Amino acid sequence: MASGPTALTVHCPHCEEPIEVPVTARHLSRTEVAISVDLGSAREHIAVHVPRLITDLPPTAR
């Protein structure tokens, strides 16, 4: 496995839109590799599908 940054593509199970997720691999030794996955782009996309909760009452209900 080569070290360095790369990316993987996953598809949103809700809307099937492709989401690119950055991945970095780093060799710790000849037999160990540390893999870092940045889920920020996936979290941002998922936030589009999460309904917003409104905690304020509308003016007519006050």
Results as ranks from 00 to 15, higher is better:
His27Arg: 13
Val50Cys: 01
Leu8Ala: 10
Val37Cys: 09
Val33His: 13
Pro59His: 07
Thr55Tyr: 03
Ile54Gln: 04
Leu8Asn: 12
Val33Thr: 15
Ala7Lys: 10
Arg52Asp: 00
Leu28Gln: 13
Val21Thr: 06
Arg26Val: 03
Pro5Arg: 15
Cys15Ile: 01
Val23Cys: 12
Pro5Gln: 15
Glu17Leu: 15
Thr31Lys: 15
Gly4Pro: 13
Val50Phe: 01
Ile46Phe: 05
Pro5Gly: 14
Pro59Ile: 03
Asp56Trp: 00
Met1Tyr: 12
Arg26Ile: 02
Glu17Met: 14
Pro59Asn: 10
Thr60Asp: 11
His27Lys: 13
Leu57Trp: 00
Met1Glu: 02
Thr60Cys: 05
Pro13Lys: 10
Gly40Pro: 08
Glu20Phe: 08
Ser3Gly: 08
Arg43Thr: 03
Ser36Gln: 11
Leu39Trp: 14
Cys15Asp: 13
Glu20Met: 08
Thr6Gln: 12
Arg62Pro: 00
Leu53Arg: 06
Asp56Tyr: 03
Glu16Asn: 09
Leu28Trp: 14
Ile46Gly: 02
Leu39Cys: 05
Gly4Lys: 07
Pro59Phe: 04
Glu20Gln: 09
Ala34Gly: 07
Ala25Leu: 11
Leu8Arg: 13
Ala25Arg: 10
Thr31Glu: 12
Ala7Tyr: 11
Ala42Glu: 07
Met1Asn: 07
His14Trp: 04
His45Gln: 12
Val33Gly: 07
Ile54Tyr: 01
Val33Leu: 14
Val48Lys: 11
Arg43Asp: 06
Thr9Asp: 11
His49Val: 01
Val10Pro: 00
Leu28Gly: 05
Val33Asn: 10
Arg62Met: 04
Ile46Cys: 02
Thr55Trp: 04
Met1Phe: 13
His11Leu: 03
Pro58Met: 12
Thr31Ser: 14
Leu8Tyr: 06
Leu53His: 03
Ile54Met: 02
His45Arg: 11
His49Cys: 08
His49Glu: 08
His49Lys: 10
Arg62Ile: 01
Met1Ser: 11
Asp56Leu: 00
Glu44Thr: 13
Glu17Gly: 07
Leu39Ser: 05
Glu44Phe: 06
Arg62His: 04
Val10Trp: 04
Ser3Glu: 12
Thr24Tyr: 11
His27Val: 00
Thr24Asp: 06
Ser36Met: 09
Arg30Ala: 09
Cys12Ala: 07
Thr31Asn: 15
Leu57Glu: 00
Ala61Ile: 00
Pro5Thr: 15
Ile54Ala: 04
Pro18Thr: 10
Leu39Ile: 05
Leu57Val: 01
Ile19Gly: 00
Arg30Ser: 13
Ile35Gly: 11
Asp56Asn: 06
Gly4Phe: 05
Ala47Val: 00
Leu57Pro: 02
Ser41Asp: 04
Ala42Trp: 10
Pro13Thr: 02
Ser36Val: 02
Thr60Pro: 01
Pro5Tyr: 14
Thr31Asp: 13
Gly4Leu: 02
Glu17Thr: 09
Glu20Trp: 03
Val33Cys: 14
Asp56Val: 01
Leu39Gln: 07
Ile35Lys: 14
Ala47Cys: 10
